[in-house]
């Protein structure tokens, strides 16, 4: 194949943008480290689980909003993705009730 010089113009990297990506990565790593510290220092219980779930949703927010760029999309797209997830909350509620009933019947 003959040598071909590309005529595509490469736009130089924007330092601030790259810094922002690494900043979000740092936040995700920091939250994970906090999770580890909690895992080894706090005794198990409802409050501990609640903190873990809150930190997980916090991490999920950063991944979806920044890495997947959803936070910068149009509002109609954001809502199209987020609103259907309300069904998940319903499923959590209904299956926890179910699980408690099974425990009661079997044990």
């Amino acid at each position: 194949m003959e040598h071909q010089t590309s005529n595509v113009q490469v736009i130089p990297a924007d330092k601030a943008k790259i810094m922002k990506i690494w900043k979000v990565a740092g936040i995700l790593a920091a939250i994970t480290i906090v999770e580890f510290i909690i895992a080894f220092t706090v005794p198990a219980g409802g409050a501990k689980s609640f903190v873990f779930i809150a930190l997980t949703i916090w991490k999920a927010f950063y991944i979806v909003s920044e890495f997947m760029h959803l936070g910068h999309e149009k509002k109609s797209l954001i809502m199209s993705i987020l609103l259907p997830l309300l069904f998940v909350i319903f499923l959590i509620f209904i299956l926890m009730v179910q699980g408690a009933s099974i425990l009661e019947v079997l044990h």
């Binding site: 998940v88 499923l91 299956l95 926890m96 179910q98 699980g99 099974i102």
Partner: peptide, 13 residues
């Protein structure tokens, strides 16, 4: 979600 919630339910039972 369904898989993880199922995990929650079975663990809870």
């Amino acid at each position: 979600s369904a898989l993880l919630i199922t995990y929650g339910m079975i663990r809870y039972s």
